[in-house]
Simulated scan of single mutants.
Amino acid sequence: MLTSRLNAYRPLVLGIGFTAVLAMAGFGIARFPYINKIGPLAVAILLAVFYRHFFGYPENLRHGIQFSAKKLLRLAIILFGLRLNIDVILQEGMPLLFRDFLVICFSIGLMILLARVFKADDSLSVLLGIGTGVCGASAIAAVSPILKAKEEDTALSAGIISIVGTLFAVGYTVIRPLLPFNAEAYGMWVGLSLHEVAHVALAGAPAGEDGLGMALLGKLGRVFLLVPLSLLLIWFMQKKGKQEEGNQITFPWFLVGFILMSVFGSYVEGRFFTIPNDVMKGISSLTSFLLTMAMVGLGLSVSLKDVRQKALKPMLLLIVTSLLLSVVTYWLV
């Protein structure tokens, strides 16, 4: 009896362990010079894609891999809520949120428009637009269940935006001495225009504490708007589901967890009791690792045979959108 139960859980445990091993390999490889600019998430996705290409999908581990790709992904998004300090954003008021709102509308709208003009893949383009406007791979992971995006599209868009965002972050640090910005203005430009929190930290660090603080503030406003954006997408998909029989959208309850964790981190922790910094850093590291494991699970669904035809146009359009976003936000600062 016990043996049969253990055998039943074996594919689950081994599959989760397999995604953890590839995630750890991604973190290890990402420590090397130059590669460390890309980040472990993108490296881990690439490892998963290449594993699938050369060795095939490990069908005997599918149960555990799917658990990482779906359940651990939602857990990572919930924990990600701790990084959002709602109180700080609200103190800045409407001017900051309005600029962040414009950034999100511009990014998503332009990606969709360019995708239709150049006949690029719609699903990838929408995900990349949301990732560009909000917070990179984390936003893509959050909205994918709402949009019923394919696992392959989620992994591809997360990998593309991580790599392109890194290139832009490095480019920002190179051109910073040429810009007529003080540290705070440069930081705000970084926070309004770059893709992921990690990219904002990378590009904002050379501007010192004031510049980096302003950069993260601008970025957190965009993360804050992930919640109303998700609710809007839920409404849109439900409306679409009523028009398409049998295509109802289920409410993504993990977003409630994201909001609760944000409220906890903003108004409970630090006021009623304090969590040690080492513990908070550990939770942040765990969040990043769980998200990387989830992306490994999604990356294993990607077929390289389809990548060139499907992903090349959206990637080029992402670069164009990111360049134009940099120009537009330059004038918003």
Rank of each mutant, 00 (worst) to 15 (best):
P145I: 13
A142T: 13
V190L: 04
N247P: 01
G187Q: 08
W189Q: 13
L255Y: 03
N182K: 04
V143R: 03
G187I: 07
E244F: 00
G218K: 02
A183N: 15
E196K: 09
G211T: 08
A203P: 02
A205P: 05
T173G: 06
I259S: 03
L212T: 14
E244C: 01
L226K: 02
L231C: 03
A183F: 05
V197Y: 02
W235Y: 14
P177S: 08
A203H: 01
R176G: 07
V227A: 04
W253A: 09
P177R: 10
V174Y: 10
L202H: 08
Q243H: 05
L147H: 03
Q243K: 13
D210W: 00
Q248P: 00
T250W: 00
F258I: 12
T173Y: 01
A207I: 11
A155I: 07
S193T: 14
L255M: 15
V227E: 00
I161C: 11
V227Y: 00
P228R: 04
A207F: 07
N247D: 14
A139C: 09
K150T: 13
L178M: 14
Q238F: 00
R176Y: 15
I146G: 09
V256R: 02
I163K: 07
S157W: 00
V164N: 06
I161K: 11
N247A: 13
V256F: 03
Q243Y: 02
W253F: 13
W189G: 09
G165W: 00
P180S: 12
S162M: 08
P252Q: 10
E245A: 15
S262I: 01
G191R: 02
L147W: 01
S193L: 05
Q238R: 15
P145H: 11
M188N: 05
A139Q: 06
I259D: 01
I160L: 11
M188S: 10
F258E: 08
G257Q: 05
Q238D: 09
P206C: 11
S144M: 03
A139L: 07
A149H: 01
